[in-house]
Structure formats: structure tokens, C-alpha cells
Design a protein around this nucleic acid. Structure first.
Length: 330
DNA sequence: AAAGGATGCAACCGCATTTAC
DNA sequence: GGTAAATGCGGTTGCATCCTT
């Protein structure tokens, strides 16, 4: 069995990291399975809050003028439309989007309804500024998986892929942040003086690549792990082992608390992540190391799919405990 | 104070993938 | 297994607001 990871195109990275790894994820990310259903019990509260904020009218904008002659409304949603959509979905559920507008009395296309629901109206949507912890998470996850906004959103309860995408494009993509910067920030050090977005030196690039090396290459400098980052992980004990022997201690539960991915082992994904330049992570520890680079606070989901031999968590856990276990090609 | 540019973000679009028949 | 419909996703657009000059 092979744990295949792909090198993505380095050109697309917001900061240069030579070992930018893509997991081979299954297409049905947990965001669809769980995230969009959580928080239903908070519906009433959310609606009250929404009403207090003035509802959708707060952000309502005039519809795009060029659509005035079209039958289907486009552009900003009105409070009335929002209410119709909310009322309908509360009764009939958030499926069958194509038929929904007619049944709900909305002059919108189903796609528009779905988007409005998912990005704005559904229960549990968190409005307001992205916190530092959330930003940290976004940066780390983006570093690991690239523009997989829905997967990143799945790690940030209440945030939508659209919101994260917007936040990245408007705030983070222009930041010359390195992982070192991030760790320094979390560690309470002053911000990097690395300039205002200018080009990065080779030496700096070198530093970044060090930061994401598999842990096997990092054990000798494990004391460099930022304490604040460790603290931020709530149940992050143990951190990657720091025994004098250099052996790596893995905590399986922590891996399984890493919620953003379905571990789809051994099966290629022919999507846009790129099949070229595949690299093999030969030990589970390498996988673990990659995960730890992005692990953050302890909210957890329990939706994982372990396929092709890892039929249960115990088995994978046993394998993970074996530092010599080599994941073989399929 | 006004004009123009920059920014933020909701919404749209097209394509890919999944599901239903 | 094949096909159409439904759904999901990421890139892009366009407008309101903020900021700068």
C-alpha cells in the first residue's frame, strides 16, 4: 500500500515551499457530510441574531441593472427573498435546489438559492472577523492543501468556503508570511521584518523548506517547536516526541482528531491537484509530520474514511506505532 | 469636499463530480 | 453500464464602502 502525496505546482504557492503536499483526498469531504448539518439546534438563536443585525437587508444591494429584463433575479438578495428561502428550507430541507425556487415562490435559479443558503442563511454561519486562530489555521491548511477552500472551511466551524476564499484573496495572499513567521507570531515574537511583499531571498526560502520537512528531519531541533503553537492545540500533548534518542512518538488520537480530510489511502484522485511529481511518504511518521504542521485547536469531527486495508482506526494506529513500517506501493 | 483608486465580499459562472434512474 | 440531473467547487465579477490624494 502506498500513501501517495503529490507535490503541487510550486508556482502557485503564496509563499515558496518546495515540499508542498497534497493529500489524495476523496471527493466527499466531511464538510458535506457533517459541517453543513451541524448547528441546526442554534437555528433560532442565529435567526434572532440575524434579525438584530438587521437581517439580509444590511448587505442587500440593488440587483445588477443588466438583469432587469431577465426573468430570473440576479444580484443581491432581498430580506424578503431570504425569508422565503429560509422558510422553505426549514420545512423541506436543503435538497432539490432546481425545483426549490418554484416551490418557494422565488424568482431565482436553484443554484443561486443553494449558494445563498450555504454561504449566508444556513444555521451555524459565523459572521464577523476571522480570528487569529482561524487565520493561523487557514494559512497552515492552505500551505498543506492549496486552494481547497471547502476542505479548509470544514476545519473552521461556521465559516464558508466562499468566505475563506475571499479572506485569503483579500488578506492573506498578499502577506509575505512564512511558516516561520507564523510560528514566531504564535510564539509571541515580533513580526517578521521581511519586507512588504517583495521577492523572497534564497536563504529565506531555505528556512521555509526546513519548516515543513518531515519530522524525521527535524527531530534534532525539536526544541524549536513554538510553545505557543503547542499551547494552541489544546489536547496537543504529546507533541512530536522529544526523546534524546530521536525516536518519534506518535499520538494516534491526535491524528484522528485532525478533521479536515478523508484519508483515502492508495486511491488516486484525478482532479486538479496534479498527478505529476508524485512523491511517496514512506512511513506513517512522514504523514504525521505533515499533519502536525497544520494541526491546530482541538475541535474534532469523527468522519474519516480509511480504505484499502485500513479498515479500522485500531489497525492504522497499530501501524502508526511502528516507526519502521513502510507503506508499500499498491 | 470631491474624485479616483483600493479593498472587501456577496454573488455568478463554468466545469467537475456524484447521484438517481 | 450509460445517461441525465443534481450537486459541489473554485475562479471570477461587480458593486458598495473605505481610503488616499
Amino acid at each position: 500500500m502506498q500513501l501517495g502525496l503529490h507535490l503541487s505546482s510550486l508556482n502557485s504557492l503564496p509563499y515558496c515551499c518546495p515540499l508542498h503536499l497534497h493529500f489524495l483526498w476523496s471527493a466527499h469531504a466531511h464538510t458535506d457530510q457533517g459541517g453543513r448539518r451541524e448547528g441546526d439546534q442554534h437555528w433560532e438563536l442565529e435567526m434572532v441574531k440575524k434579525a438584530e443585525r438587521g437581517g439580509a437587508a444590511v448587505v442587500a444591494r440593488p440587483a445588477v441593472s443588466r438583469n432587469k429584463l431577465e426573468k430570473v433575479n440576479k444580484g443581491a438578495w432581498t430580506a424578503e427573498e431570504d425569508q422565503k428561502l429560509v422558510d422553505y428550507v426549514r420545512v423541506h430541507g436543503d435538497r432539490k435546489w432546481r425545483a426549490l425556487p418554484t416551490k418557494a415562490g422565488l424568482n431565482r435559479c436553484g443554484k443561486s438559492c443553494r449558494l445563498r443558503w450555504l454561504n449566508y442563511l444556513r444555521p451555524g454561519i459565523k459572521r464577523g472577523n476571522i480570528s487569529e486562530q482561524e487565520e493561523d489555521m487557514i494559512i497552515r491548511l492552505h500551505n498543506l492543501i492549496g486552494n481547497r477552500w471547502s476542505l479548509i472551511a470544514g476545519r473552521l466551524p461556521g465559516r464558508t468556503d466562499n468566505e475563506i476564499k475571499n479572506y485569503w484573496n483579500s488578506h492573506l495572499s498578499k502577506k509575505p508570511l512564512t511558516i516561520s513567521d507564523l510560528n514566531d507570531k504564535l510564539n509571541g515574537k515580533s513580526e517578521s521584518t521581511g519586507g512588504d511583499g517583495g521577492s523572497r531571498s534564497d536563504a529565506e526560502t531555505e528556512t521555509i523548506s526546513d519548516d515543513i520537512l518531515p519530522v524525521g528531519d527535524q527531530t534534532e531541533r525539536s526544541e524549536g517547536q513554538p510553545q505557543a503553537f503547542k499551547d494552541s492545540q489544546q489536547q496537543a500533548e504529546p507533541w512530536i516526541g522529544e526523546e534524546a534518542s530521536g525516536e518519534i512518538t506518535l499520538d494516534i488520537d491526535e491524528l484522528f482528531n485532525f478533521p479536515a480530510f478523508d484519508f483515502d489511502l492508495g486511491r488516486d484522485h484525478s482532479g486538479s491537484c496534479g498527478e505529476q511529481d508524485a512523491v511517496t511518504v514512506t512511513t506513517c511518521q512522514d504523514l504525521w509530520a505533515s499533519l502536525m504542521q497544520t494541526s491546530c485547536d482541538g475541535d474534532s469531527f469523527d468522519h474519516y474514511q480509511l480504505q484499502q486495508g485500513f479498515s479500522d482506526l485500531d489497525e492504522l494506529g497499530r501501524l502508526m506505532d511502528d516507526p519502521d513500517y513502510v507503506v508499500c506501493p499498491p
